[in-house]
Design a protein around this nucleic acid. Sequence first.
RNA 1: GGAGAGAUGGCCGAGUCGGCUGAAGGCGCUCGCCUGCUAAGCGAGUGUGGGGCGAAAGCUCUACCGAGGGUUCGAAUCCCUCUCUCUCCGCCA
Length: 425
Amino acid sequence: MLDLKFVRSNLDLITDMLKNRGYDLDLSRFQHLDKKRRSILVRLEDLRYQRNKVSDQIAAMKKDKEDVSSLISEMKTVSKEIKGMEVDLPEIADELNKLLLVIPNIPHESVVIGKDADDNPVIRMWGKIRNFDFTPLPHWEIGEKLHILDFSRAAKIARSRFSLQRGLGATIERALINFMLDIHTRHHGYIETLPPFLVNSDTMTGTGQLPKFREDLFKVEGWDLFLIPTAEVPVTNIHRDEILSFDTLPIRYVSYTPCFRSEAGSYGKDTRGLIRQHQFNKVELVKFCCPEDSEKELESLTADAEEILQRLELPYRVVSLCTGDLGFSAAKTYDIEVWLPGQQLFREISSCSNFTDFQARRANIRFKRKEGRGTELVHTLNGSGLAVGRTLVAILENYQQPDGSVVIPEALRPYLDGVSIIKRD
RNA sequence: GGAGAGAUGGCCGAGUCGGCUGAAGGCGCUCGCCUGCUAAGCGAGUGUGGGGCGAAAGCUCUACCGAGGGUUCGAAUCCCUCUCUCUCCGCCA
């Protein structure tokens, strides 16, 4: 969420921003409630001041055995009025807060104004797209032929959009997780965390999944618990309601978790294969830093994610999301898209975002500088490093051979006891 | 699941017949003094959110002692509900 005072004094800027993002929001209600809240607050605090004063006076008079009955009856009416206002004020503050919660973050100045994904500028390309002298297959065909992916049995066990991995199909998944975690902890300075995979509604609210995106979540019946849609949720909330000290920043966490998404609203999209699943594995990078560092931290975060693809020698490109495509909480986002020859397209495999203070305000994550009083909000960032299932997809499609086998990227072999090729067993 | 105990500031820890307690004391931290170095010592300061005034420094009001309600002129202190933590027993990977 944005800062109330900032919104109050920058209504024009917000209006422009909303237009660029393709939002239709009326701010007049906001103005009205804001004024109302403050007028009530002033009156309420004045009454409280009176009450406190007179209460002290009553205490003093009682000590001297003076008669206080008239003062008490006077204060009874004041107290009543205070109670009434104490009911009204939170109602108005709540409504104001709700309005504030649906205003998206302000895009960074470097973000291109555009309508949708077609307007996203390509920042860079990496790797050589392989020339096939046969028609490359999509990964679901490769995987089923090799007996490492089994979608029909997965549907029997659960339902569609689940997968069953077998043999090397399961082992490579595990190897990729270890590979990614090792790179990020050993070479990029991230601290490994293993968080809860179910979280409560406060946590979901802290990172913005609630209240707006409840439909996308799986909820545990009878409990205040949801399955996490990404490790971003539990990991960012590690420091919810905390004041971090300056010398601990930046904090960098890497976390492997499964992710659970209802994919409501994507019926018919990516129905085949591993691309869009209700459950998938992801290694996530999360950073907390001070405001002046967040731009450069986004660059390094993206580079850290890219390095995984480079080591696996998978070609990709990096695009910068334009205003129309940018997520609700992000000020700037780089998508890393890996090349999938079986489908002849670039596919998102990581999304790296700088949320500036937007998430931090909502989750109340602050820090204190050595000198100077008061607290400031940290900046939070996160990005996949990488989506594991989609990485497997990219390996299968990019490394497929004419005979249907798949070569294992060199970098991954140490994690597979030296196995260098997947063949039908 | 059964039986108890508890939740106060960065930390430890006072505060129980309701009334200068935003909160004693200690530790830590910051600044200053002192000191060949280190250690110690002395002095001052040291919460957060929201208002108002001010160009600012700052001043001032208000709220906050796990959360939410209640009683009262007045609640960290009394009552109710919830959450969490700890100990013992049972159960369990």
